[in-house]
Design a protein around this nucleic acid. Structure first.
Lengths: 240, 240
DNA sequence: TCAAGAATGCCCCAAAAGGGTTATTGACAG
DNA sequence: CTGTCAATAACCCTTTTGGGGCATTCTTGA
């Protein structure tokens, strides 16, 4: 982009490049190639128009479903894909999976009305690089395309907040009032130590180990080791 | 902000409010009150200057450590806190924990040079609302303060990317060649089912359940249920 | 100072788990 | 068409678990 501007605008060159020539140069330098998947034709027209009229953007294609996402991508070779989720025949999420499995370097921005956790974390876990809500302004999407192309991870504020919140929940969940000793014993249990081994390790009697484990089961509302360990790991009570 | 502008500019009012009066009104309406924690005095001076000269921002105080974070916050009552991590005597992360535990509604933006996973996820899990790297421009911080005040979650692109990456499913490091049936049985084990219950659930004999579990233990290189479940959960073999 | 909770310990007893061995049936690949 | 492997099943035998109850320290906080 900078290079192009230099070429195009620098008076030292003695002349202005023709729009056509400059466009070619530009394209070679840093044109961002974009493909759209959006079943709402009015919205897709609007987006197309905006992209085509944004300097540095080149619209490769606009599809109303992602049935042929892979073939499309193979021929279009976009840098960035704007992907709706709710499309006929095939969900945009499936499209993400397919495209990312073959072209992991291509950036995909989800552009959807869904702001629920379900779709959000599904998309993110499957490799989406950005998540913009449709209720955001279209210029936000344009900005997001630039951001994602530069290696960022554009998200609507509301989405970014959900993402951050998902980090907060983890360590807090519930420690079920387990005492330090109980957690210690539980940790050994998860490592495969038998009661006897734990008793030797902690230098206490096997009966005491049993005692701690019994109390732990009551507090966790479980009735056996495997279940207790599963619950403890999932609650973040034990880790290493 | 909108309300203020209306008040200030609307001709129907018949007069313009004095700058001072308008400022007071403005303050009451939507002045964003900001406190800074930053031990580098040059940087803190720069930030102070920028904040004081930004319309709608009010700098409450600038501290060079967060030893007294709680008392400071109690008296300053900021809307947004800009928090460095590496400060003498006490880490900004401790400050976040303390402040958030008493004032969960106050937004805290981490402003730091650390771009490693350790600090990042530590801060986020403890309730930070934004994470801006110092190498970003100062105007980015100003923008972040506005964003976080409006309920967003400002992050440097590099950081946002790290956050997203943390959601990407690890390609299941190793599935230990467990068969579908073995995984199924293991899942029930983690739910607290006894061999007998599993056998009834799957409509097979207890001996077969034992067989599957024995094979599973061999493949996982473990010798008991709790250890197997721990390993399976941590490897992502079983989830729900 | 007294109650509560944590950590420790023991006993009884039944059920569950775990190790070893062996075998049959289908399915699928070479 | 034959070997491999998943899934099924059975038997033997020992150790471990898990559910009860009961008791003694020791610390801590109201």
């Amino acid at each position: 982009m900078k290079q192009f501007r230099k070429l195009f605008y620098t008076p030292e060159m003695g002349y202005f490049l023709s729009a056509k020539y400059s466009r070619n140069l530009y394209q070679k330098a840093s044109m961002i190639k974009i493909s759209i998947y959006e079943d709402n034709s009015r919205l897709s027209q609007l987006l197309s128009l905006m992209i085509e009229n944004t300097e540095g953007f080149e619209l490769m294609a606009c599809h109303e479903n992602c049935l042929e996402a892979l073939q499309n991508t193979r021929t279009e070779r976009p840098d960035v894909i704007v992907m709706d989720i709710d499309m006929p025949h095939r969900s945009g999420i499936d499209g993400v999976v397919e495209i990312k499995s073959h072209f992991p370097h291509i950036k995909i921005i989800m552009h959807t009305v869904f702001d629920g956790n379900e779709h959000l974390f599904d998309c993110l876990s499957k490799g989406a690089d950005g998540y913009i809500l449709k209720k955001d302004s279209s210029t936000r999407l344009i900005q997001a395309i630039k951001e994602v192309n530069e290696g960022g991870a554009p998200m609507s504020p509301f989405i970014a907040n959900k993402v951050l919140q998902s980090f907060r929940k983890q360590p807090v969940t519930d420690d079920f009032n387990l005492t330090d000793r109980e957690i210690e014993v539980l940790t050994y249990l998860a490592k495969g130590f038998s009661y006897r081994m734990i008793s030797i390790e902690l230098n206490i009697s096997v009966e005491t180990v049993r005692r701690h484990i019994k109390n732990t089961y009551q507090k966790l509302h479980v009735q056996c080791g495997p279940e207790a360990v599963a619950k403890a790991i999932r609650s973040g009570i034990i880790n290493s």
